[in-house]
Design a protein around this nucleic acid. Structure first.
Lengths: 196, 196, 196, 196
DNA sequence: AATGAATGAGTCTTCATTCAT
DNA sequence: AATGAATGAAGACTCATTCAT
């Protein structure tokens, strides 16, 4: 399903992706029918199947593109930074901000993780992010900046905090994205900060 | 939809809940049809609707009961413990262990959060857990055991770490539940442990 | 399906008939389920099938009993009246008043006429009323009180006027039953009263 | 539910309406399933829902169209006639003939009146016919052609006679439509013709 | 590229009826 | 006499997908 598309075709395709993303995010993947999507755009049903082999393919496409995009953003954010701890911090901030800015996609990610059809693809994508972080964490450990603990687990924990706090605070008005990022960074850096 | 049930009826109902939980967890809520459930149990389709008004009602019932159960477990775990930090730790461990022991339900929770129909009910349930934790965190702050930060955000962060690490490690064989709990507690207590 | 019933049994049966009549009249025969009936009475489903072989049988039973009752009322109303035209008039009044007083049953009659399963039984019942009227009409014709026209058609026409006017006016508050009867009688006696 | 239809689509839609009308008339609205309809036409189930939002919508559509058609027929029949009594007569004849020619629809009307879902729509439609007649009746009263009585009640009475006599005689072979019309007109003009 | 039309398996749900107790 | 439980065919409706034009 990769046609050579005219400029107009590419636009259509993008249109479909955008609108479908919104609907999937709002109503859920299953509750949103292909008919909903094409009707919403005022086009015929054939259009959909001209650009995508199936509803599933479209969804996977959305997931893949988004994950790639988010990763790129994170990478750009840490480019040229020497301090590994600082890289972790900047990565967190970039991630949080991307998720906040792409709330629809964040929702899709949440759902995708829960359904076997997509869980694999999602885990793979997140593993990439984790691997990225692991690099910095290992460096930080070697440099004695943080205690020596399983860097992968640490990376997943960071992801967990990020996702959760955005999930909770993004739709309210008590915190904006940078504030959420601050909170996430704080917690990730020193947890509850228990004085032992 | 609350009938007077004979012992036999109660058993059937429980059977339906158990089996449906398993199927929902394995295949997803939407992909699991009522037909799948009754066929799997070898009973007629009417049985389902004798005990539940709808597929949705059954699902909500599962969510509610489970959330209540998990909370009870946490409360029992911290009963009579004076140290608030210790209470937080024990709460985390109890939570992690419950989620690990009820992996099916954990999966259902993950899905429920993603669909508007159930998201409300889920958030409510999780808010209760957070409120529970907030009590201990505030106490710890007052006693100067942990720095003064928004206890609610801290509680949500803890929840995020717990869910994420269980999600990642529960199905592998690198960690068992208590080890996961250790990792979660560690991270929550001191984060990455950055030496500032 | 004619059991020997204890007094208590007869009461139950009557209860079922009464309640079912009300529901059928309000919601329609098809939309009213046996479950609706037994639930409405707070009894188990077995009760229904203890007294009636089927939903259909119950309905037919209602129709038959009612038609018999209505006819009896008409007959009593004209007992001992010599003038055939007066008998027709009294028959009309009795009919209208019965239908007005038993609006639920009237509705059931209307429905029953429209469904092949019951149409036969209904037509039979109405034919009896028509035959009754025909007797008087013939006498009136013989006596030269009314012109010589097909008495059966006349009888059906009378029935048509009665049913229609009750249907239209019974639920409003512009006419009560006797007034409706007056209007019916008037129209039947001289139609529009065209001066030729 | 009003799509832009191609000629082929319009044909399909008409086909569905025609066939459904026949089945509803023969077997009743409730006993006729959507499956019966599409199977009878040898098309897939989806076709039905491509053209109609629901079985109910289709039925209402049938009712509305038919009532409009019948009215038009009546109006055309009295066009340019000066004598109000004559207009009433011609209206009756046109009505009777339409109902006789569209016996299926007449049956649907009978049923529709009995079910709350449709009763409103039906009454509205019939009220229009009554209003039409009332105009002529009032004129006739003013001109002293008929006695001064509630013209609305008279109109309903006429409707009642028409419906009833067609109902009774249309399927037999003793009268054809014009004869039925004669009988209706006769009765409406002078009722039983009682010599007072 | 795009449209309206069509497919038919599948979805949730209902319901008359039967049955064991 | 009566109950709660169970049946399973049938009902209305959905929907991903395909197709002719």
């Amino acid at each position: 399903m990769s046609r050579r598309l005219t400029p107009r075709g590419k636009e259509r395709r993008a249109q479909l992706i955008d609108y479908a993303t919104k609907r999937f995010a709002t109503d859920g993947y299953h509750p949103t029918s292909v008919a909903d999507i094409v009707d919403g755009l005022g086009v015929g049903k054939g259009v959909f199947y001209w650009y995508f082999a199936s509803k599933e393919e479209l969804f996977i496409e959305i997931l893949r593109t988004s994950q790639r995009d988010m990763r790129r953003r994170q990478q750009r954010a840490i480019e040229g930074v020497d301090d590994p701890v600082r890289r972790v911090e900047l990565g967190i901030r970039a991630g949080v901000e991307w998720l906040a800015a792409n709330n629809d996609l964040r929702r899709l990610f949440e759902f995708a993780r829960t359904e076997s059809t997509f869980a694999g693809s999602m885990k793979a994508g997140q593993s990439v992010l984790v691997s990225d972080a692991v690099v910095h964490l290992k460096e930080a450990i070697v440099e004695g900046r943080i205690p020596d603990r399983d860097p992968e687990a640490l990376a997943w924990a960071i992801l967990g905090v990020s996702n959760q706090l955005i999930h909770v605070y993004i739709d309210g008005d008590s915190m904006d994205a940078p504030q959420i990022a601050d909170t996430v960074v704080d917690f990730c850096m020193e947890g509850l900060g228990v004085r032992r």
